[in-house]
Computed example of a mutant assay.
Amino acid sequence: MAEVKLFGVWDSPFSKRVELALKLKGVKYEYIEEDLKNKSPLLLNYNPVHKKVPVLLHNGKPISESLIILEYIDDTWQQGPPILPKDPYLRSKARFWAKFVDDKCIPAMWKACWQKGEEGEKAMEEANDALEFLENEIKGKRFFGGDDSIGLVDIAADVIACRNGIIAELMGVQFLRKDKFPNLCKWADEYCNCSFVKENQPPNQKLIHHYKALIQASTSSKSTK
């Protein structure tokens, strides 16, 4: 029986965060794919409050919420590069920006992909405003934590860096434009071209097929209303 188990979904950017962190730290784990339309009794038992992935099970003890799991991994396993800085002030900054990605960037970007008309324009403005803060934060740095290695904020923003091209191709929504966000674009290129990151991304064609199915389902749903 594996000491560490991860309950996740292959296309979930939040599950992907935890996988990246475990592999960055060199932690061996068993991955358990969940079907969110038919959630397993184990998932419901280990995360009864939110009933969602990811859930990390370590020695039989469950930890949920991706950002909390990332901190737990960093605190528990000392091998490998640190995910959070040791300095208390820098740690607080990393927590702030990771939460900013979750609370401000991802929701607005997701909404901008699916909403049309005025609602879509408003969501795009919100996404651009949020990305502008990240643009200023990454200026002059290789990664959000500095030049040394990938850290908490980089992993939190993985979906922004690595799925921007697919979203632009399929949905016609381009978030990271070099003329508007040159620093973020440079960071995204640097981050996505790290061998560690490239090796641990879902296959592009599988993601494209998945997003096409989502778009088709959304279109069909709206046409029947």
Rank of each mutant, 00 (worst) to 15 (best):
A2C: 12
E3D: 12
V4Q: 02
K5T: 02
K5N: 06
W10E: 14
P13F: 06
S15K: 00
K16L: 14
R17W: 11
K25L: 03
K28G: 10
Y31C: 00
L36Q: 02
L36V: 14
K37D: 15
K39H: 11
S40Y: 12
L42R: 09
L43I: 06
Y46K: 10
H50F: 08
K52V: 13
P54Y: 04
V55E: 00
L57H: 10
N59A: 08
K61H: 07
I63W: 14
S66T: 06
L67W: 01
I68L: 15
I69H: 00
Y72I: 03
I73Y: 04
I73S: 05
D74L: 02
D75C: 08
W77A: 02
W77E: 09
W77N: 06
W77H: 03
G80L: 04
P81W: 05
P82R: 00
I83R: 00
L84K: 07
L84I: 11
L84W: 01
P85A: 05
P88A: 06
L90V: 01
R91S: 07
R91L: 05
R91C: 15
K93V: 12
R95E: 13
W97Q: 08
A98L: 11
F100H: 04
V101N: 09
V101Q: 11
V101T: 07
C105W: 03
I106C: 10
P107Y: 12
A108D: 06
A108N: 11
M109W: 06
C113E: 14
W114A: 01
E118Q: 09
E121W: 14
K122S: 13
A123Y: 00
A123W: 00
E125W: 08
E125H: 13
E126N: 07
A127L: 04
D129R: 15
D129L: 13
A130S: 10
L131Y: 02
L134Q: 05
E137Q: 14
K139G: 03
G140S: 01
F143R: 00
G146L: 02
G146M: 07
L152Y: 12
D154S: 05
D154H: 01
D158A: 15
V159G: 12
N164V: 07
G165L: 11
A168K: 15
E169T: 12
L170M: 01
G172E: 10
K178F: 13
K178S: 15
D179I: 09
F181R: 01
N183S: 13
K186L: 15
A188Y: 02
D189Y: 02
Y191A: 05
N193H: 11
N193V: 05
C194Q: 13
V197L: 01
P203Y: 05
P203W: 07
Y211H: 06
A213N: 10
I215V: 04
Q216A: 14
T219S: 12
S223Y: 09
S223G: 06
